[in-house]
Nucleic acid binder design. Sequence first.
DNA 1: AAACTATTCAAGCATACAATTGAATAGTTT
DNA 2: AAACTATTCAATTGTATGCTTGAATAGTTT
Lengths: 225, 225
Amino acid sequence: MSATGDLKKNFYEQLARLGKAVASPARLELLDLLCQGPRTVESLAHEAGLSVANASQHLRVLHGARLVDSEKNGMFVMYRLADPAVGDFFQTLRALGEKRLAEVDAILREFREAPESLEAIEKETLLNRVKKGEIILIDVRPAEEYRAGHIPFAMSVPLKELRSHFPKLRRRQPIVAYCRGPYCVLAVEAVKQLRAKGFRAARMDDGIAEWRARGLPVAVSEVSK
Amino acid sequence: MSATGDLKKNFYEQLARLGKAVASPARLELLDLLCQGPRTVESLAHEAGLSVANASQHLRVLHGARLVDSEKNGMFVMYRLADPAVGDFFQTLRALGEKRLAEVDAILREFREAPESLEAIEKETLLNRVKKGEIILIDVRPAEEYRAGHIPFAMSVPLKELRSHFPKLRRRQPIVAYCRGPYCVLAVEAVKQLRAKGFRAARMDDGIAEWRARGLPVAVSEVSK
DNA sequence: AAACTATTCAAGCATACAATTGAATAGTTT
DNA sequence: AAACTATTCAATTGTATGCTTGAATAGTTT
């Protein structure tokens, strides 16, 4: 029916569908998120900063390229990678990107260095970034201390439970850890563990006491569950 | 200067440049060809069935994504993969494609089966395909026999020199080997070696004698060099 | 059943891209 | 230097894509 030449052309066309699927920053971010586990459309949209309709459309494209599968679960639709091989592919793509694109390298360098020089950044700016979700702020003190008072939007991740949070964390999302203050080793240890696992982590040497002393807002957990 | 969120967005944008580079069938074919070794623009254009200007533009896109490098050599410009990692990436992409895209699978199946059932195909059709470059027809008899008379458009690839041709050959391009006729083992052996190396090879059991006997055209080398 | 929610669909607009064409470079041969 | 060759550049055209908006589905709660 079709000549061999058409088949050859067709083969590359099919392959190009995969290429097209990863030709959009938005879809790459969605894929990256999905590499870390199944998610609903809305959570993906929110995390990637897309409108829900837009995210849905991008997901449809990814689905069309057989990169992701979806499954209806009650009112939600769960998206997941169609195959672990998709994750491998994404990692290869990222590795190649980091290796070959000088611009990407520069960005990552800035990324890596930014948290280091956090001391220089105004604490208010940090707070704004955390609020926007650009940085994950973790409180590594025991849960009770967290409940008693913590920096707004900080997640409670007691040092002992840090390992169990690894799967949830994104490897390139900057993480800032804080604890009781400059003479407390909890955050130092947390950063060490996170970096060992490849996360971009930095320590904020101020603790809750210093924070409060500057007149910055402090949150209190109402529900102690 | 730029917020962390911008950096994150920028990272995926840079990554998407790689994606865009492999989002076109033409560029994928060019990449595939370049995986097998450096080539000039014209040879790439010809083999991929593109106009030279078009191929040049596609190559510029690949170059922009840092996937290929070019080097001026006299009047020619040689293109090559920028890094062996690019080849790895392409293989991963292809592997994923073959694994995930049902259509691609179907195509490959047809591809794989087509040469097998070559006996059923009219020899004239074969000739047309060879003429169009869809199939590579190789004559595995010693060079003298080839010169004395061969099927039009067949390449002379004496069995002894087969190995040295491997680098030039494309792994998915169907190859058909013929020799003296149904009772000659040259083509059988050639197919065995080609398949062992992953090429798509089939044997045509008719030889030059049978070909001529059917009244089909026979070519003669004028220049014996 | 009515109000709500998560998701998808459809239409519209602006932008980006692929292929074609003809001309411009840069190198080679005569 | 003139003719030729390989490659690139520039302008054009049609088509595909991404994002937005508002409505439609399908499931859930009241």
